[in-house]
Simulated scan of single mutants.
Amino acid sequence: MKKIYILAVALVAFAFTGTSQIIEDDMDFYDNAIDISSQSPTFDNWSGTSGTTEDGFTTDVIAIGIKSLLIGNNATSDVILQAGNQNGGQYTFSFDYYVADGATGFYGLMETNDTGTPVFTLTFYPNQGGAGVDEIRVGTGVVGTFDMPKDTWVKMTHLIDLDADTIVVLMDGVEIYNDAYGSTLFGAVDLWSVDGSCENYFDNFFLDEGILATESFDAKGFVTSMRNGQLTLSANEVIDTVAIYNMLGQEVYNSKLGATSAIINMSSYANGTYIVRASINGTVGSIKVIK
């Protein structure tokens, strides 16, 4: 039976510092006419040299917001998403993924961003070889299959624990893989035009240091709402503490609540995305809010 997860990133204080690299990119502000590696240090291509057929470009033809990253059917596009060469720790990596009907696809998780001697930990092949089978591989061996809808967006989430050597992969919140990760390193993600039938779109990349909150946190009924700069929190049980972080990892609020609900005045805070971290009867979890 497929297992459905409720996701929340359980952060610790200063989780955004040190070697952790946060990625949150909706792809909407790039110039479609310029290769993406020339516009952002988050992206590179396989050879490390822009102006080649490996270059990737954004498009506004298919996107969740305004634009997405297209890896098309030239069989040479090969974009590297830099994940910060993480060594140990727990990470949540996600993105929205669209594979055109009848097209093939590929992305691969890599130990480091060294493309000279690349080591892949896990690779994904939607519609592998055009045969209609969506494969997950370690090396050349198939270790799992999944049923990916085509011509629609799905959310791919990867919960990587480098210390415990585990990875859980979710598609739209449903587990499709749960096994050993195979390394203590996570350095990059390869987005490659695997063949002449490839047509892949990527959007809303997100990488953060943190772990999957247990399902017991969801049972606490923790919900938030934002209106006119006022953040309302509520839960089924007493909320012990609340901390709020901006996307630079800076703690902007911390309080002991000792109540099942509270209103926090955020009217003076800058507009943007924040992480709200709550401890409820010993269970910790976090969710994003937008002001």
Score class of each variant (00 low, 15 high):
Thr152Ala: 08
Asp114Val: 06
Gly141His: 05
Met156Ala: 11
Leu159His: 04
Lys155Arg: 14
Ala131Glu: 01
Asp134Ile: 07
Leu159Trp: 04
Trp153Pro: 05
Asp114Trp: 12
Lys155Ser: 10
Phe120Ser: 14
Phe124Tyr: 15
Phe120Cys: 09
Val133Pro: 10
Ile160Gly: 04
Phe146Ser: 01
Asn127Val: 03
Gly130Glu: 00
Lys150Trp: 03
Glu135Met: 04
Gly141Val: 05
Thr157Ser: 14
Thr145Tyr: 12
Thr152Asp: 04
His158Trp: 13
Tyr125Phe: 14
Phe146Pro: 00
Val142Thr: 13
Trp153Asn: 03
Val138Lys: 15
Arg137Pro: 12
Val142Cys: 01
Lys155Pro: 07
Pro118Leu: 05
Asp134Ser: 03
Val143Pro: 13
Asp151Pro: 05
Ala131Ile: 00
Val154Lys: 00
Glu135Leu: 12
Gly144Gln: 13
Thr117Lys: 11
Thr121Cys: 15
Gly130Arg: 00
Thr157Arg: 10
Leu159Cys: 04
Pro149Asn: 07
Thr145Ala: 10
Pro126Ser: 02
Thr123Asn: 12
Asp134Asn: 11
Gly132Val: 01
Thr145Trp: 09
Gly141Leu: 10
Thr152Lys: 05
Thr121Trp: 13
Thr117Arg: 07
Thr115Leu: 10
Gly144Arg: 10
Gln128Lys: 09
Val154Gln: 01
Val119Gln: 13
Val143Thr: 11
Lys155Glu: 11
Ile160His: 08
Thr140Pro: 02
Gly130Cys: 00
Gly130Pro: 00
Leu122Asn: 09
Thr123Gln: 14
Thr140Ile: 03
Thr115Ala: 08
Leu159Arg: 02
Gly139Cys: 10
Gly132Gln: 05
Ile160Gln: 02
His158Glu: 11
Thr140Phe: 09
Pro118Trp: 05
Val154Asp: 01
Phe124Thr: 11
Pro126Ile: 01
Asp151Asn: 13
Lys155Leu: 10
Thr117Leu: 15
Thr121Leu: 15
Asp134Lys: 06
Asp151Thr: 05
Thr121Ser: 15
Gly129Lys: 08
Met148Trp: 03
Trp153His: 02
Val133Tyr: 12
Thr121Gln: 15
Gly139Tyr: 05
Gly132Tyr: 03
Gly144Met: 13
Gly130Ala: 02
Gly129His: 00
Gly132Lys: 05
Met148Ser: 08
Asp114Gln: 11
Gly116Trp: 02
Val154Ala: 01
Lys150Cys: 05
Lys155Asn: 13
Gly141Trp: 04
Thr115Asp: 06
Ala131Cys: 01
Val138Thr: 08
Ala131Gly: 02
His158Leu: 12
Val138Cys: 09
Val138Ala: 11
Thr117Met: 13
Asp147Pro: 07
Asn127Lys: 08
Thr145Met: 09
Leu122Gly: 06
Thr152Val: 04
Gly139His: 02
Arg137Asn: 12
Val142Gln: 00
Lys155Thr: 10
Gly141Pro: 08
Gly116Phe: 04
Thr117Glu: 15
Phe146Asn: 01
Ile160Asn: 06
Gly129Glu: 01
Asp151Gly: 04
Val119Asn: 10
Gly141Gln: 14
Gly130Phe: 02
Leu159Ser: 03
Val142Lys: 05
Thr123Ala: 12
Gly116Asp: 06
Thr157Gln: 14
Val143Leu: 09
Thr157Ile: 11
His158Cys: 07
Lys155His: 13
Trp153Phe: 07
Thr121Ile: 07
Thr157Val: 10
Thr140Tyr: 08
Tyr125Asn: 04
Ile160Cys: 09
Phe146Ile: 00
Lys150Val: 06
Thr140His: 07
Gly139Gln: 08
Thr152His: 04
Pro118His: 07
Asp147Met: 08
